[in-house]
Amino acid sequence: MKIIALEEHFVPRQVCEAWEATAKIQDFTVSMNGNQYARQLEDLEDIRIQAMNDAGIDVQVLSLPSPGVQNFKPGDSISVARDFNDILTDAIAKRPDRFDGFATLPVPSPIAAAKELQRAVQKLGLKGALLNGRVHERNMDHSDFNPIYEAAEALHVPLYIHPQLPPSGVRDAYYSGIGPIADIMLSMGAIGWHYETGIQLLRMVLTGVFDRYPNLQVIVGHWGEVVLFYLDRIAQLNHAGLKLERPIADYFKQNVYYTPSGIFSQHYFSRTIEIVGVQRMMFSQDWPYQSCGENGARTFLEQASISQAEQEAIAHGNWERLVSGILRNTDTETGGSGKL
Results as ranks from 00 to 15, higher is better:
residue 186 L to G: 14
residue 187 S to N: 07
residue 191 I to Y: 10
residue 192 G to F: 05
residue 194 H to C: 05
residue 194 H to G: 03
residue 200 Q to L: 15
residue 201 L to V: 15
residue 204 M to H: 05
residue 204 M to Q: 05
residue 205 V to W: 04
residue 207 T to P: 04
residue 207 T to Y: 10
residue 210 F to R: 05
residue 210 F to D: 00
residue 210 F to S: 04
residue 210 F to P: 00
residue 212 R to A: 14
residue 217 Q to R: 15
residue 218 V to P: 01
residue 218 V to M: 06
residue 219 I to R: 01
residue 219 I to S: 02
residue 220 V to K: 04
residue 221 G to I: 02
residue 222 H to K: 10
residue 222 H to V: 00
residue 224 G to P: 02
residue 225 E to H: 11
residue 225 E to D: 09
residue 226 V to Q: 12
residue 226 V to P: 02
residue 232 D to T: 14
residue 233 R to T: 08
residue 235 A to I: 14
residue 238 N to D: 10
residue 241 G to M: 08
residue 242 L to Q: 09
residue 245 E to P: 07
residue 248 I to K: 00
residue 248 I to Q: 00
residue 248 I to V: 15
residue 251 Y to H: 02
residue 253 K to F: 04
residue 255 N to S: 13
residue 259 T to G: 02
residue 262 G to L: 04
residue 263 I to H: 12
residue 265 S to Y: 05
residue 265 S to K: 11
residue 269 F to C: 01
residue 270 S to E: 14
residue 271 R to S: 15
residue 272 T to V: 06
residue 273 I to T: 06
residue 275 I to C: 09
residue 275 I to N: 04
residue 276 V to S: 04
residue 277 G to H: 11
residue 277 G to Q: 07
residue 280 R to K: 12
residue 280 R to I: 05
residue 281 M to H: 08
residue 284 S to R: 11
residue 286 D to N: 14
residue 287 W to K: 07
residue 289 Y to R: 03
residue 292 C to M: 11
residue 294 E to K: 14
residue 295 N to R: 15
residue 295 N to Y: 11
residue 300 F to H: 05
residue 302 E to N: 12
residue 304 A to W: 01
residue 306 I to H: 00
residue 307 S to H: 03
residue 309 A to L: 13
residue 309 A to T: 14
residue 310 E to A: 04
residue 311 Q to W: 00
residue 312 E to N: 05
residue 312 E to F: 02
